[in-house]
Amino acid sequence: RNLTILSLPEDVLFHILKWLSVEDILAVRAVHSQLKDLVDNHASVWACASFQE
């Protein structure tokens, strides 16, 4: 069985995303439609995003 980041529970993905910069979140968003939906549909992803580079 192949395990990917998409195999992780949504709460784990949120925990990972909250540590990323805006640039990295946008890069993750571009990788897969499921990740794009996760980022686009949950404001909590952006609430913790680091807007300082």
Rank of each mutant, 00 (worst) to 15 (best):
N41D: 07
V39T: 02
L3F: 12
E23K: 12
E23Q: 09
A43V: 05
V39Y: 02
E53T: 08
L20F: 00
V22T: 11
L20W: 03
C48W: 09
D11S: 14
V22D: 08
S44L: 06
H15W: 06
V28I: 11
Q52N: 09
F51H: 12
E23A: 13
E10C: 05
L35A: 02
R1C: 10
A47K: 11
L17K: 00
A49Q: 14
A27M: 10
L26W: 06
V28F: 08
L8D: 09
L17E: 00
E53C: 06
S50G: 14
A43N: 09
D40C: 00
H32L: 03
S7G: 09
C48H: 09
F51T: 13
A30R: 14
D40I: 00
A49G: 14
S21R: 11
Q34G: 08
R29A: 01
L13N: 07
D37N: 13
E53W: 06
A43G: 08
I25E: 02
V28W: 03
C48K: 09
E10W: 03
H15E: 10
D24P: 04
S33L: 03
H32A: 07
K18Y: 06
R1W: 00
S7P: 03
A49D: 15
A27E: 03
V12G: 03
V22S: 07
L17H: 04
T4M: 03
W46C: 08
A47P: 12
Q52P: 08
W19D: 11
H32E: 04
N2I: 05
N41G: 13
I5S: 00
V12I: 14
A47I: 11
D40V: 05
R1T: 13
V31Q: 06
D40G: 02
D40N: 04
L13F: 14
R29P: 03
C48Y: 08
N2T: 11
H15Y: 08
W19N: 15
S21G: 10
E23S: 11
F14I: 14
I25N: 00
D24N: 00
L13W: 10
H42L: 06
V28L: 15
K18P: 03
R1N: 15
A27T: 14
D11W: 03
C48E: 14
L17D: 01
Q34Y: 08
I5H: 02
L35P: 01
H15C: 12
H32G: 05
I5Y: 06
A27P: 07
L6F: 08
E53F: 05
K18E: 11
V31P: 00
D37L: 14
I25K: 05
S33R: 11
L17G: 06
V39D: 04
D24V: 02
V45W: 14
E10P: 08
W46T: 09
Q52K: 14
R1G: 10
W19H: 15
L13G: 04
